[in-house]
């Protein structure tokens, strides 16, 4: 595997390689948020908070406690999941805007905590994290997550998550324990947030609390909304566009953020449900099939 990675590093331009690695990490992060916000319909605006918990936990564990790479990643994800579980509990009572406020507050608390956290290097940040994350590990994990996520959403549990988003009272009256499943979605989503954070810190070599601020949460939320709430291909596409857009827009230099904003506005006007939010493979097949019939007749 190391040989393969060496080959990849040799043949691919480091700049593109870096973008592809960050894309893989963003996909994992966005899929976690998609499960919470896109699928289960619980608006979370603090996903970067879970990411930072995973990033710091795994970095500290591998630097100071000699954890192996995979163990550190797993531990970081588990700690993030635990905090997701904790803040999942108030989601029993809160909905929509109120939940958004709570999650923003939570992410800010985490950020300020790491600003003052001695083992995390306070505001200076943490440097010298071993760079274990490479193209192969990121994309192996990302593909595994995509596969498991797809299977989950097609199962009984996945349908129940969607049902909660669509109508909570109706969902409860079919026997769905809505409270438990909302917490479950939050926990699993935070797990993926923490996992992405761990991959990130072991790639970047250096992290500091500002990397995981409010803008990062919004960026991740944008990926989910832009691609299509609740759709896995949509979330992947959203991550792809929003990871690449800032890079492509380097040509327009200072106007970069302006174009970035305009892109979001335009996409939302033409595809308010997200690019792939209401597209199903079934519909595509049907449309495609019909066209075929037409060409036969003419």
């Amino acid at each position: 595997m190391n040989g393969l990675d060496a080959a990849i590093t040799q043949y691919i331009d480091p700049y593109y390689l870096r973008i592809m690695i960050l894309l893989g990490i963003n996909i994992i992060l966005a899929l976690g948020l998609n499960l919470i916000t896109g699928v289960t319909g619980q608006l979370s605006m603090g996903h970067a908070g879970f990411m930072s918990i995973g990033a710091y936990t795994s970095a500290i564990l591998s630097m100071q406690f000699g954890f192996s790479y995979l163990m550190a990643l797993l531990a970081g994800a588990m700690v993030a999941a635990f905090f997701g579980f904790l803040i999942g509990i108030p989601t029993l009572r809160l909905e929509g805007d109120y939940l958004a406020m709570v999650t923003i507050g939570f992410a800010e608390i985490i950020r300020v905590f790491f600003l003052n956290f001695e083992p995390g290097g306070k505001a200076v940040g943490l440097s010298g994290i071993p760079q274990h994350t490479n193209f192969i590990t990121v994309w192996l994990i990302a593909l595994l997550i995509i596969a498991l996520n797809t299977r989950l959403l097609k199962s009984r549990m996945g349908r129940a998550f969607y049902a909660i988003r669509e109508n909570e009272i109706a969902a409860a009256s079919t026997g769905i324990d809505t409270t438990r499943l909302k917490i479950l979605a939050f926990t699993v989503g935070s797990f993926l947030g923490g996992l992405g954070g761990g991959l990130y810190s072991h790639y970047m070599y250096y992290i500091n609390p500002q990397d995981f601020g409010f803008m990062k949460s919004i960026e991740l939320l944008n990926m989910v909304i832009l691609g299509g709430m609740g759709s896995i291909p949509g979330t992947i596409l959203g991550s792809f566009i929003l990871t690449l857009a800032p890079e492509m827009l380097r040509i327009v230099a200072e106007y970069r953020l302006l174009f970035y904003g305009a892109l979001l506005v335009i996409l939302m006007i033409f595809r308010p449900n997200g690019i792939l939010g209401d597209v199903r493979i079934y519909d595509l097949k049907k449309r495609w099939g019909r066209k075929e019939v037409k060409t036969c007749q003419s």
């Binding site: 009984r156 349908r159 129940a160 969607y162 049902a163 669509e166 109508n167 009272i169 109706a170 969902a171 079919t174 026997g175 769905i176 609740g230 209401d278 079934y282």
Partner: peptide, 17 residues
């Protein structure tokens, strides 16, 4: 109170949760 953005089949499948 249907699950509007789910297919008709999925609506019934959720029913057996």
């Amino acid at each position: 109170r249907l699950f509007n953005k789910l297919s008709v089949l999925d609506n019934v499948r959720v029913g057996s949760h």
